[in-house]
Structures are given as C-alpha cells and as structure tokens.
C-alpha cells in the first residue's frame, strides 16, 4: 500500500519531504508511474507536488528566466520559444503531446537520466538549479547537478523548485537522434548556444555518458576559433569542434545503440547544431 501525500503549496511540500525523506516526489508522473505500473518499483510514499502553484509558474527578471520546476513542457514550447529557444526545441521532442502536457523539467532533473531531453539545454545555457528544503534553499549549477545515472546532488529532503536560465543571447539549437521519427528515447542529443556579444559558446550532450555532459573544451575551442565578426565556419574548425564534443562523452553499448555510434552521432550533431546556429546568427 502506497501512502499518498498531496502537497498544497511549496511550504507544505518542503515539510512533507522533510518528514518523509524516503518518499518519492511525483509531478507529471511520466517517469514514476511507469515503474509503478510495471511493478518495477515499489513506493512506500508518494508526495504529489502537481498542485503546488509556485512550481507551475515562470517569470522573467531582466535577462534571466526563472522557470518553475513543475511547468509542463507544452507550456515551455508555447510560451518560452522566444526566451529559451534551445530548451523549447528540446521540449518539443519529448514524448508525445500527452506526455508534454504533464512532464516537467523538475522531473527530468529528479530522475537524472542521461537521456532526459531537457537536460543538455540546461547545461549548455549554464542554468542554475534551485533546490529547497526545510534547511533553506541553494542554487546548484546545472553542470554540477548530476553525479551519475539516476543520481544527483539532491539531498533526500530537498525539492527542485526552479531553474534559472539566461534569456537567449543568440541562436540556440537542440538536435536529437533516435531510431524512430517521434516518441523516442535519444540515442544521442546535443544542445548548443551562441552568445555573440560575449563571444561565448555553450554545448552539451545527452545520452552519451552516465550523465548529461558539458563539452567545456569544445566550448572554449569554438569561442576562440570562431570568427565572431561574421566570417565563414571553416571545415577544420567544425570537424575539431565535433571531435571535442564527442571527446567529452563516455558512452556505453546498450540496447539502443553502440558506444561508437553514439560518439559518432554526437560529433555529427555537434557540427550540425553549430553550423545551423552560425547560419542563424548571420542570417538575422
């Protein structure tokens, strides 16, 4: 028998989690319920945070968006395509319309699967994850949030409340590869951001390591090598960039793809997303 606790508001949710650190949080349910339905997981307690209004809001403060952890992906696609095009693109690839109506960024963070499609855009954009507990709140850089497959720095009494992302300062891309043309778990994905004013590049890969990974070396390389005054994208730069992003990954062979193919796909998607972002930058 699962005990089901419904949080009325954020304070209540934090209290419940403090009282029951072993409880599993459920918002959209798109991960938690699969395990329950298949009998692959047993939960002694569920804390429902789907009614917590504070988690279901987003707001813009200057150049930053504060995105509540419980905003469903459908709303991210519909409402945040201008501010956060990379995340919105990724959100559109998640599951089906029905899934996007329920699933949340908080869920992707909490589940901490390397295949969470919303995660590479958070890393690429250098987002920060806000977590709260009865002990207070803290912000964790998205790039430091994950510690392994299904594992993060989240303490058992903590709740992800929101994500802070900079409003896009330039083109943002997200590309994902899967064996079907919809409704598919990524074999590999890449998120990329360009910030021409500060001459910065953000890049992250999903489904290609135990956690989503930022490609720091590739970012620095591109930032330095790109002709930010509007020149062409030289083929060797592109190739090296793809190689560096792939080099940041450490994929494994599994049912959905071999390590070699994943690495190859990351390199291809990295080159492509950079190309498209670069084209977009100079088209506008």
């Amino acid at each position: 028998m699962t005990q089901f606790l419904s949080a009325a508001d954020l304070r209540h949710a934090i209290e419940l989690k403090a009282a029951h650190p072993d409880a599993t949080l459920i918002a959209g349910g798109t991960d938690v319920m699969v395990g329950l339905n298949f009998g692959h997981r047993q939960e002694s307690r569920l804390i429902d945070i789907s009614r917590v209004a504070e988690l279901r809001e987003w707001s813009r403060d200057g150049d930053t968006v504060r995105l509540g952890a419980g905003v469903p992906y459908t709303r991210i696609v519909e409402e945040l395509g201008g501010e956060l095009p990379g995340l919105a693109r990724a959100a559109r690839t998640i599951g089906s319309a029905q899934i996007r109506n329920r699933a949340t960024v908080g869920g992707n963070l909490g589940t901490a699967s390397p295949a969470g499609d919303a995660l590479p855009p958070l890393l690429a954009a250098r987002a920060s994850v806000e977590v709260a507990s009865s002990r207070g709140t803290r912000a964790v850089p998205a790039r430091e949030f994950f510690t392994g497959p299904g594992r993060s720095v989240l303490e058992t009494d903590e709740i992800v409340t929101s994500v802070r992302l900079p409003v896009a300062a330039g083109p943002q891309q997200f590309a994902k590869l899967g064996p079907r043309n919809a409704m598919v778990i990524a074999v590999a994905s890449v998120a990329l951001t360009l910030d021409p004013e500060h001459r910065r590049v953000g890049c992250s890969a999903g489904s290609a390591a135990p956690t989503p990974v930022a490609a720091a070396e590739a970012e620095e390389f591109a930032a330095a090598e790109l002709d930010w005054t509007g020149g062409e994208l030289p083929a060797p730069v592109l190739a090296r960039f793809g190689g560096l992003v792939a080099g940041a990954t450490s994929p494994i062979d599994d049912l959905r793809g071999s390590a070699g193919y994943r690495r190859h796909a990351v390199a291809v998607l990295a080159r492509r997303t950079l190309t498209w972002a670069w084209q977009e930058l100079w088209r506008s």
Binding site: R89, R92, T93, Q173, F174, A175, K176, L177, G178, N181, A182, V184, A186, L269, R272, W276
Partner: peptide, 10 residues
C-alpha cells in the same frame, strides 16, 4: 524529415 521534430537534419 528523418527524425521529425528531433531536428537532427535538414
């Protein structure tokens, strides 16, 4: 296109 909205190609 191949990949659909996954945006993997042009």
């Amino acid at each position: 296109l191949p990949g659909g909205t996954s945006n993997s190609t042009r």
